[in-house]
Design a protein around this nucleic acid. Structure first.
Lengths: 187, 187
DNA sequence: TATATTTCTAAGCAAATGCTTAGTTTAGGT
DNA sequence: ACCTAAACTAAGCATTTGCTTAGAAATATA
C-alpha cells in the first residue's frame, strides 16, 4: 500500500482542543495549530479539511471529555444538589494549572458574531440545550416541582453557569464558591 | 493657519463604538472603521493614533452612555430593588433593534486573551469593579446587612449580570425576565 | 526488488490586516 | 493674492491569514 500516518488523529485533536480552549477560535491560527499539534499544515488539511474542521473535531473531543461530569449529573437523583455538584465539577473541569479557561462552548458562543459560521453556531446551541434539559430533569426530582417551574429555574441556572464561565476567568475560587452557594439558596 | 477637520471626533467615535459593540475588538478591521466612521484611515490614525486608540475612546464613550443607568443606581436608595431595576435597565440599554449586544466591556473581557493588551484589560477591570462597588453600596441599604454579606452578595449579583450579558444574546426576553426575578428572590 | 500509493516537507499563493506616506486640497494670517 | 500649515485622498508597505501544491520520502504489496 503506502506510507503510514506518523500521528494519531485523536491525539493531535486533543492538543488542538487545548489550544482553542485557551485561545478561542479566531485567534488560533493554522500556524499555531501546526506547532501545538506537532504536524504539518498539509497533514492538518488532509485529515480535517480546514480550520473549521479541526475546530468541529475539537468540539467533539471537548464534549467527550465533559461527558464525565454530565453523565454524573444525568445519573444523579439528588435534585438541585446534583446540579450544584455539577457547578463545582465544571469549575474543576475548566481549570488548567492555576487558571480557569471557562467553557469552550460558552467562550465560542461569546466570540462568534451574527455573521458567524452557522454550522458551528448550531453545534453550540445543541450543546447548551442538552445541559439545560439535564437541569430540568434534575429539578423535577424535587417533589412538588412543576414542569413550568423547572423550566424557569433551569433558565436561571443556565444564566448562572454562563456567568460562572466568565467569572471563573476573573475572580478567585472563594468568590466563585460564594456565588455557587448563593445561587442555590433559593430554589 | 490651516484646513479645518471635516468631522467631529465625538461623532465618529460614537459610530466606532457601535461597531465595536456589535462586532468585538479583533473582528473589527480598520477598513470597517473607515466606512462606519465615514472618514479616511489617515484621519483615524491622525486623530486616535491607532486601532487601540479608537477602541479606548470607544470604551470612554460607552462609559459615558451607560452612566445614565449607573447614575440612577448610585442615586437609588431602594436596596436590592434598585439593583434589580439596574438589571432591567441594562438589558434595555444593550438592546439594538430587536437583538441584544450584551455589554461592550464584558464582551471584550471575554474576547481578550491572556496575552491581551494590558492597557485595555485594566480599563475593563476598573469598570467592572466600579459596578460591583455600586452593588455593595446598595446592598448595605438593606437593614441588618453586614459588609461581608454585602460583598458576597455582590459577587453573586455580578455573576448573574455577566451571565445576563451572555444570555441576552441567546435567550428571549421572557426567559431573561424569569432569570432576573429568580436572581433577586433570595437575597 | 520494483511499483504503486500515500504521507511528508517546504515553498508559495492570494487576500486581508494594521499602518504609512507621497502628493493634493483647503483655509487662515499676512 | 500668496504662503504656510494642517487635513485630505489614495496608493502602497510589510506581515499575517487560511489554504495549496510541487516534489521528496516512506511503505505495503506484487
Amino acid at each position: 500500500m503506502a506510507r503510514k500516518k506518523q500521528y494519531n488523529e485523536e491525539e493531535v485533536i486533543e492538543k488542538a482542543t487545548a489550544l482553542f480552549w485557551r485561545n478561542g477560535y479566531e485567534a488560533t491560527t493554522v500556524r499555531m495549530l501546526e506547532k501545538e499539534m506537532g504536524i504539518n499544515q498539509f497533514s492538518i488539511y488532509s485529515s480535517f479539511g480546514n480550520k473549521q474542521g479541526v475546530f468541529l473535531e475539537s468540539i467533539n473531543a471537548y464534549k467527550k471529555r465533559i461527558r464525565s461530569i454530565t453523565d454524573k449529573l444525568s445519573k444523579s437523583n439528588n435534585g438541585k444538589e446534583g446540579i450544584k455538584q455539577y457547578f463545582y465539577d465544571f469549575l474543576e473541569f475548566a481549570k488548567e494549572d492555576d487558571k480557569n479557561r471557562g467553557c469552550l462552548v460558552t467562550n465560542t458562543v461569546n466570540e462568534i458574531k451574527e455573521d458567524g459560521d452557522p454550522v458551528i453556531m448550531e453545534q453550540l446551541m445543541d450543546f447548551a440545550n442538552d445541559i439545560k434539559q439535564l437541569f430540568v430533569d434534575n429539578l423535577l426530582q424535587e417533589k412538588g416541582n412543576t414542569v413550568e417551574e423547572a423550566a424557569r429555574q433551569s433558565n436561571y441556572l443556565m444564566n448562572s453557569l454562563l456567568g460562572l464561565s466568565v467569572s471563573s476567568k476573573v475572580f478567585d475560587q472563594s468568590q466563585l464558591n460564594d456565588t455557587i452557594e448563593f445561587t442555590f439558596l433559593n430554589i
